[in-house]
């Protein structure tokens, strides 16, 4: 049962990546079309509209990606039913916030909530609690938890672009992702 859920979560994650890729490919096409029709379009408001549109278009894929990750990793901690409920509540709060607050703030709160879950999972993995992992040695499990936490941190960081903390958080997320990947790949 746990393996079956894991399988469908991985499928969901892959679907989110395909969705993101499709959005990206469309973005490449539109960027080129706009550049060809007006060489200086980037200095016009059109570029800003394009960026806003692309950010919005990629949002469902990113939310789906983070949602599947938020269930996939912490289900090692508590049952899939509970964690799905928690993620569902977070999603609901996100939708309510989306109505009340600007998109950036709603997203920031959504990603921060998911980050919190990933931090708890990482701590418990380091403490070697009896978590459900499909396979792998302790080092590899810590690596997996760390890289998924770092990916969430990247997204939190996107919501603070322009602030003084942005690059510092980016480097922390980058280092975490690299160390996590190495541990996950070569940790046994």
């Amino acid at each position: 049962m746990a393996d079956r859920t894991g399988y469908w979560l991985v499928i969901l994650f892959i679907v989110s990546l395909i969705l993101f890729s499709a959005t990206g490919i469309y973005g490449i096409y539109e960027y080129n079309m706009k550049s060809k029709s007006n060489e200086n379009w980037k200095s016009t408001p059109e570029y800003r509209h394009f960026m806003e549109k692309m950010n919005l278009l990629s949002l469902p894929a990113v939310v789906l990606m983070m949602g599947s990750l938020a269930i996939c990793i912490p289900r090692r901690l508590i049952s899939t039913g509970y964690i799905s409920l928690i993620v569902g509540i977070i999603l609901l709060i996100f939708i309510i916030y989306l109505v009340i607050y600007p998109l950036k703030i709603a997203l920031g709160i959504f990603f921060l909530s998911l980050l919190l879950i990933q931090i708890v999972v990482l701590i418990l993995t380091i403490m070697d609690r009896n978590l459900i992992y499909r396979k792998g040695m302790r080092m590899s499990r810590i690596g997996s938890a760390l890289l998924h936490l770092s990916l969430t941190l990247f997204l939190v960081d996107i919501t603070i672009v322009g602030s003084g903390l942005h690059l510092a958080v980016f480097w922390i997320a980058g280092a975490g992702f690299m160390v996590g990947s190495i541990m996950s790949f070569y940790g046994g």
């Binding site: 894991g6 399988y7 991985v10 994650f13 892959i14 990546l17 395909i18 993101f20 890729s21 990206g24 490919i25 973005g27 490449i28 960027y31 080129n32 980037k42 570029y47 394009f50 960026m51 692309m54 499909r134």
Partner: peptide, 27 residues
């Protein structure tokens, strides 16, 4: 002035593709 630049977007899409492969390899 570089967000959603074609080359950067292409690289991210490529990264997404290879991330997908790493996950399909689990199953």
């Amino acid at each position: 002035s570089w967000w959603w630049d074609p080359k950067i977007t292409g690289s991210l899409v490529m990264w997404a593709f290879y991330t997908a492969i790493l996950h399909t390899m689990i199953y």
